[in-house]
């Protein structure tokens, strides 16, 4: 009742909370129902994910250390990993993934510029926005179908080149190992335009307009404002799109490769994810497929952990 009591109470517990949201006393009675409802409602999602993703991950790790054809598995052990790192084919495949990473700066930089253009809100910008976002709705299969025609010997690209007088340099880009990978990378960059432009445009919309206005009053040119004010403020969005782009480059291009090049010529466009398919379906070495799968998973998990840090639940608002 006394003030001193009250004082100590606040002194010891400086922040007496008005409401406890997180967690309740373990054995309280009224919250039991709420807890039971919570467990019940979250169970289906958990079951689905554990059964169809969690367990197979464990199996993949196990089978990666076996020789497996889908029916019988012979245990080999962790030595498969040391063997893998000595395997020149593995490094050839990883090289393709590494080369694909070179496309990432373009897949981010071009959308960044496009978003900045859209953000000027010139007449018709909504229409342009719809057009630029359109590739997000198109399947890689369809994109690959066109890309194959585009880069072929008698395709659109060479046609275009001969029209402007470079007819002599006509080549079938999909016929050379490296040029095929370049063609794949260009196609990849084109189809990432939609997603990344969306991310950057959203980012730019969240910026406080008074900041750029202040910079304008301070006498900075538009380019200066873009590089000195807008870009630094977009860091979080750029990191985010970087992660998305890397994840897509490593794990979303199966269909594109399947349609465009089937991994060829040679190992020219065989990335990790595509080699998994080849090992499993063409050579029926499910163990090797699982082994490459684990490597891919580890790379993705690292990217994913970065991503989870970037999409903290609390940042998700903005409805």
């Amino acid at each position: 009742m006394s003030l001193t009591e009250a004082k100590t109470a606040t002194a010891i517990r400086p922040a007496v909370r008005r409401r406890g949201r997180s967690g309740r006393a373990a054995h309280s009675r009224l919250s039991r129902r709420r807890r039971r409802a919570g467990i019940l409602l979250s169970l289906p999602a958990l079951a689905l994910v554990v059964a169809l993703i969690g367990i197979p991950v464990g199996q993949a790790v196990y089978y990666s250390m076996t020789q497996w054809n889908g029916i019988t598995a012979t245990w080999i052990g962790p030595s498969v990993y040391t063997a893998l790192f000595k395997d020149p084919i593995f490094w050839r495949v990883v090289e393709n993934n590494a080369l694909l990473l070179l496309a990432v700066p373009f897949a981010i930089g071009i959308p960044l510029v496009i978003a900045a253009l859209l953000n000027e809100h010139v007449r018709g910008w909504r229409f342009f926005r719809s057009v630029y976002f359109l590739p997000t709705a198109i399947s890689w299969v369809v994109i690959g179908m066109f890309a194959q025609r585009f880069f072929a010997a008698t395709g659109v690209l060479n046609n275009l080149l001969s029209h402007v007088g470079f007819g002599a340099s006509a080549t079938d880009m999909l016929a050379g190992e490296h040029s095929a990978l370049v063609a794949l990378a260009i196609t990849f960059i084109w189809s990432m335009v939609g997603t990344n432009t969306i991310i950057f445009l959203t980012g730019m919309a969240t910026l406080d307009p008074t900041l750029t206005e202040a910079a304008r009053v301070d006498g900075l040119s538009r380019t200066q404002i873009f590089f000195r004010v807008t870009l630094p403020l977009l860091t979080r969005f750029i990191q985010f799109s970087f992660v998305i782009t890397v994840i897509s480059a490593f794990s979303a291009l199966f269909s594109l490769i399947f349609v465009m090049t089937s991994g060829g010529p040679g190992f020219g466009t065989t990335t990790l994810e595509f080699f998994i398919y080849q090992a499993g379906f063409q050579q029926v070495q499910f163990g090797t497929a699982a082994l490459y799968g684990v490597v891919l998973f580890v790379i993705m998990a690292i990217a994913g952990l970065v991503q989870l840090r970037l999409i903290k639940p609390d940042d998700g608002g903005g409805w």
């Binding site: 517990r13 008005r18 406890g20 967690g23 006393a25």
Partner: peptide, 11 residues
């Protein structure tokens, strides 16, 4: 009322 984190909201 004590919350699980040990704060006493009402005593």
């Amino acid at each position: 009322k004590e919350f699980p984190d040990g704060t006493t909201a009402v005593s």
